[in-house]
Amino acid sequence: MKERDARVWRDQALTACCMAAAAEGDPLLSSARRAAVLMDCLAVLRAAHRPDRAAQIGMGEFRHGLRGPLGALLPPVPGTADRRFDALHLFDKHGLVRDAVQDLCREHLVPHVALERHWPWARVRAEQEERRLYEILRRLPPEDYRRARALLAEYPAGPVRQLSRAWDQLWMRFDFFEAVSDWPWCHLDGWWYPCPICHWPMRVAQHAATIDVRCEAHAARGVHYRRTSGPAGLGPPELVGTGKKATPVRGLPASTEHLALTRPVWRYGALPTLLELDLRDQVQDLPHVTVEMYPGELRPDEYDLHITVAVPGRRTQRFRVDAKAWESVDALADALLERQPPPYPLTILLPDHQDHERHYLAARLRGRRITVTTLNRLVKRIKTACGVSR
Rank of each mutant, 00 (worst) to 15 (best):
G269V: 00
L73M: 07
P300D: 05
H218C: 05
H356K: 11
R369N: 14
D175F: 04
A87E: 12
K93E: 15
A114G: 14
P264Q: 07
E107Y: 00
P111V: 09
R63H: 05
H207T: 15
D212Y: 01
F319E: 00
C41R: 03
A43D: 13
R67D: 14
R147D: 05
L188Q: 03
G269P: 00
A100G: 06
V379C: 13
H207R: 12
M172A: 15
P159M: 07
M293T: 03
A22Y: 03
P300Q: 06
A55W: 09
E302T: 11
V124I: 06
L349Y: 00
M39C: 13
P51I: 10
R366T: 13
Y134H: 11
A166Q: 07
E24H: 09
A246L: 04
P341R: 11
R368Q: 12
R149P: 01
E216D: 12
S328M: 01
F174T: 06
G235T: 07
Y155S: 04
P236I: 01
A153W: 01
D86Y: 11
E327F: 04
L96T: 09
M172C: 07
L252T: 06
C195D: 00
W9C: 09
T210K: 07
T256E: 15
Y344L: 02
T80D: 14
C17I: 01
